[in-house]
């Protein structure tokens, strides 16, 4: 009753209006984790004994521009991480915790990766059925820390539990950005009808294909400002497809493949998946953080409004769209837009 009351109260009085909304990326964020079974990457749920790869999507505002004229953008902060793969303890309250460590775990350790733009990619083998049954577990857990610019703290949670500190910092240097991450991987319970990862088929902007050059992804080392030259080689139509500062809101439409909304049986009842869509951007104004794609529609739409003022050389805005099927399946896409001033010299006549 109190939960309902507080939720309703917050709904009425707009409790969180002073906060930065969840769709706005202002710092290092972990926004998704995708599980792929080795040899069958479309499968989202492993069976006991399967080898899996878990890729963790980390986003931020990209490389910070240099304050010095003529100096290239700085390389974005290196990501360092430390993870543990395990069979979780049976819990109903509080965050998940590990019961039995799974080893070996490739990519779990905290060594800085060779590729400064790499994201965590962790591989391990799911324990066999007997081990899972002994723990009364129907999932495996990947839990850890991701930091930017420094190593993770090795024992911050342990020190808190022991009462040595009332602070929890994910990174050794408290000034480094970091996140505690928990990825719960459900074990497949219906091998004859396995859960598959949903798939985003297209993302359109204002009813047309997303304009280049950021219609596939945006490099993490791309600077936030100074994107105007990237539009010079585009056709006038593609250039004009990038909204200008002060333009009215644009429509972003996300489509999934028809197979993404799987049917499944739970307690003898046939249900159809519902896809939760997370909208994320590092600039402008999104209408909402979450949307849902329900059968039979295969798409969902939201509105995005650009800035009212930007520098002459433009601002690169990153978008990340993540979909989840609620049963462990995930997919994501990244896009970008270069927002120029309303009366930009780059604008077509």
């Amino acid at each position: 009753m109190r939960l309902f009351g507080l939720s309703l109260l917050c709904l009425l009085i707009a409790c969180g209006d002073s906060f930065v909304p969840a769709w706005l990326v202002t710092n290092l964020r972990v926004v998704g984790a995708r599980v792929e079974v080795d040899g069958q990457p479309e499968r989202a749920r492993p069976e006991p004994g399967d080898d899996i790869q878990v890729s963790v999507l980390v986003i931020d505002q990209g490389a910070k521009p240099s304050e010095e004229m003529g100096v290239p953008a700085l390389t974005p902060e290196l990501l360092q991480w430390a993870f543990v793969a395990c069979i979780p303890q049976a819990t109903l309250i509080g965050p998940p915790i590990c019961r039995t460590i799974i080893e070996p775990c490739e990519g779990c350790d905290g060594q800085p990766p060779a590729d400064p733009l790499a994201f965590p990619l962790i591989g391990f083998q799911v324990p066999d059925q007997a081990e899972l049954d002994a723990a009364e577990a129907n999932n495996v857990l990947l839990q850890g820390v991701i930091c930017a610019g420094g190593p993770p703290a090795e024992d911050s949670i342990l020190r808190f539990i022991l009462g040595e500190t009332d602070q929890i910092n994910p990174c050794e240097d408290p000034d480094d950005e970091g996140r505690f991450v928990s990825v719960l991987v459900p074990i497949e319970s219906s091998p004859e009808d396995p859960n598959l990862n949903p798939e985003i088929s297209t993302v359109s902007l204002n009813g047309r294909s997303w304009p280049p050059p950021y219609d596939e992804a945006v490099r993490r080392d791309a600077p936030r400002t100074g994107c105007a030259p990237d539009l010079e080689a585009l056709s006038p139509e593609d250039r004009a497809a990038h909204p200008k500062a002060g333009d009215p809101p644009s429509s972003i439409n996300l489509f999934v493949t028809p197979q993404s909304l799987q049917s499944y049986v739970l307690d003898d009842v046939t249900l159809t998946e519902e896809l939760q869509v997370s909208w994320l951007t590092d600039g402008g104004d999104l209408e909402r953080t979450f949307s849902f794609i329900t059968d039979p529609a295969n798409s969902v739409l939201t509105q995005w409004g650009p800035f009212t003022g930007v520098p002459e050389d433009g601002v690169l805005v990153r978008f990340t769209f993540v979909i989840r099927d609620g049963r462990g399946g995930t997919d994501w896409r990244e896009r970008g837009l270069c927002i120029l001033p309303a009366q930009s010299a780059e604008s077509p006549p």
């Binding site: 963790v56 009332d166 989840r324 609620g326």
Partner: peptide, 11 residues
């Protein structure tokens, strides 16, 4: 609340 853990399954 002294920290938080990101739940990747539910965002």
């Amino acid at each position: 609340v002294i920290g938080s853990i990101y739940d990747a399954l539910n965002d």
